[in-house]
Computed example of a mutant assay.
Amino acid sequence: MTYRIDRRRALAGIGTVGLGTLLAACGDGRNATPTTSAEVTTSAGATTTVQPQTGADPALADLFDDAASCVVTPEQTEGPYYFDPKVIRSDIREDRPGVRLRLAVRVQEVGDCAPVPNAAVDIWHCDAGGLYSGFESASTGSGGAPGRGGTGPTDDEIYLRGAQVTNADGIVEFVTIYPGWYRGRTVHIHTKVHLDTSTTLTTQLYFDEAVSAQVYATGPYSSRTGRDTTNDRDGVMRSGGDTPPMLTLSREGDGYLGLITIGVDR
């Protein structure tokens, strides 16, 4: 089948499809059988193939804790900088400099601790300088936050944004950079887990302060000073109660591997 998708801008080799269409292609999020790939025609006239099932490293499942977590992940605000960039991809870095982060997210049903296949996991975060694609002016403090009901993106950038679909183990994998910081917030990654076309969990993922300190002592992060909010002072993080979604981080080459299980209850 072929989906014709309007592009904000042409990016060679990247299949683009809205999350609603992707979820329709993947079924209702409850089936473990991979769906077929879809041919995507970009506005530039190129055709590429998007496989809805993510290409996560099969060994990732062994890296998660042997015991299922079976804990519901708390809902948290999506913030003012969300939009659907229509990019289904694992590597979301584009030209953004920073420490490499391989992020693996496992989606799990808390009722029976079973993996949730065919769920669309959508992530977005700021770059090393604290900027969000689509809202660069607003995220510098000069343009004001758009907020819900605003005018939407104000520029054509889509770096550090993307979505993947969980495999049979309920896992997606992204390659990104360690997020930067901006005033009033601790280090975080925004996440939406779309279980089907009508059920979504919105949350944020957080980082160990000792690791952040090490990363921020290196370039390009070290060029910025004045970080004012850490985990223990971040109101949004603490809204998750005693168990905010914390990444398990380990060194991997010259970067990091981050693992987290997101528990959902339908």
Score class of each variant (00 low, 15 high):
25 A>D: 10
149 G>E: 00
20 G>P: 12
119 A>V: 06
19 L>I: 15
5 I>D: 09
45 G>R: 05
123 I>R: 02
26 C>W: 06
90 S>I: 00
171 I>D: 04
55 G>F: 14
153 P>F: 01
172 V>E: 04
167 N>A: 01
134 G>P: 09
68 A>R: 08
35 T>K: 11
174 F>K: 02
49 T>R: 15
233 R>Y: 07
213 A>W: 07
186 T>Y: 08
78 E>V: 14
91 D>N: 11
83 F>D: 01
33 T>M: 05
145 A>M: 11
7 R>V: 12
29 G>E: 05
220 P>A: 02
49 T>V: 15
185 R>M: 11
74 P>Y: 05
107 V>I: 14
72 V>D: 14
115 P>L: 02
13 G>F: 10
169 D>F: 09
127 D>M: 03
189 I>C: 08
116 V>A: 07
225 T>A: 04
111 G>Y: 09
93 R>M: 05
127 D>S: 07
182 Y>K: 10
39 E>R: 12
261 T>D: 08
213 A>N: 08
85 P>K: 05
247 L>Q: 11
194 H>W: 13
3 Y>A: 09
2 T>E: 14
251 R>P: 01
200 T>A: 04
204 Q>G: 06
240 G>V: 01
232 D>I: 07
7 R>M: 12
38 A>H: 11
198 S>C: 15
261 T>H: 03
71 V>G: 09
19 L>C: 08
128 A>R: 04
140 T>S: 12
143 G>T: 05
38 A>V: 14
22 L>H: 09
144 G>V: 09
217 A>I: 06
260 I>S: 09
148 R>L: 09
